[in-house]
């Protein structure tokens, strides 16, 4: 048994968290996502890569229905979370988003204190029974986002006063605080410097233990560093999806190969 096969078995043993079937997304008349089928595994980091405008972010946003906030956007096909269709009429996106959290490209802490930023989700979802409970959730989330030691002495200072990397980890803590099952990350490091990027990447690797993480990234190195599975999008199509090692070393589709070797992008 070599290492490669071990990883493979480990991946295969994970259960499917999100299952997308024949997903189409339209922006008005533009057909932005075409026939995407993908299975996202639990306790795994899945990376979406592809050139700008390929639809990877759009597809990510369909996974927790963030695209509902855009009037002209329309989704067809089925996306199931634990076997339940999230586009079903009975689904309240508010409940869905508590289960499928999201971290954005630009760190966007609310203009509140660090504590209130993290406590925001638990408060609106009513996750804490008491003040002590909430304190505990906040501390656990900040520890979970590897930022506790840096902010524990100034929990009531404004979140906007932190550095870019700290802000992004605060946003991750904020997302973790609602105890989601899936964490979506839309280019979470694109606004950060290399050191902050390294810290966030380490964090993503640790988050894998509890969540299914889906990360959209521009950087192939980042995808290779943090993900176990990779999906390559091109012009709205899912071109290739598989284990990260295989996609980078032995892509089956010529388009994937061109992208990885830097001929398209």
């Amino acid at each position: 048994m070599n290492d490669m096969r071990l990883t493979e078995r480990k991946v295969d043993s994970k259960e499917i968290k999100i299952e997308a079937r024949d997903v189409q997304v339209f922006y008005g008349d533009t057909h932005a996502i075409k026939d995407v089928n993908v299975d996202i595994l639990d306790k795994t980091v899945t990376a979406f890569i592809g050139p700008s405008g390929c639809g990877k972010s759009t597809f990510l946003r369909t996974l927790n229905r963030m695209n509902d906030t855009i009037d002209i956007c329309r989704v067809e096909g089925a996306i199931n979370l634990d076997g339940e269709d999230i586009y079903d009429k009975r689904v309240d996106p508010v409940q869905l988003r508590a289960k499928v959290g999201m971290v954005f490209q630009k760190p966007n802490p609310f203009p509140k204190s660090i504590y209130d930023n993290v406590a925001y989700g638990p408060r609106i979802h009513g996750l804490a029974q008491s003040k002590a409970d909430l304190d505990e959730i906040v501390e656990r989330s900040l520890r979970g986002a590897a930022i506790w030691n840096e902010v524990k002495d100034r929990l009531h200072a404004p979140g906007t006063g932190l550095s870019g990397g700290q802000q992004q980890r605060l946003c991750i803590a904020r997302a973790v605080a609602t105890s989601p099952e899936v964490l979506l990350m839309d280019e979470p490091c694109s606004a950060l410097d290399p050191i902050a990027t390294g810290q966030v990447e380490d964090l993503i690797d640790e988050l894998r233990e509890k969540f299914s993480v889906v990360i959209v990234t521009h950087s192939m190195q980042q995808a290779a560093r943090v993900s176990q599975r990779t999906a390559f999008f091109h012009l709205g199509n899912l071109v290739e999806y598989g284990e990260t090692g295989q996609i980078f070393t032995n892509p089956t589709d010529p388009r994937t190969e061109s992208y990885i070797t830097g001929r398209i992008g």
Partner: peptide, 19 residues
């Protein structure tokens, strides 16, 4: 990063999205 722990017992019981 030793402080990265989220206690698993706190994960809420799985509830259906459809209700």
């Amino acid at each position: 990063m030793t402080d990265a722990t989220v206690s698993p017992e706190k994960t809420p019981k799985r509830s259906s999205l459809h209700t």
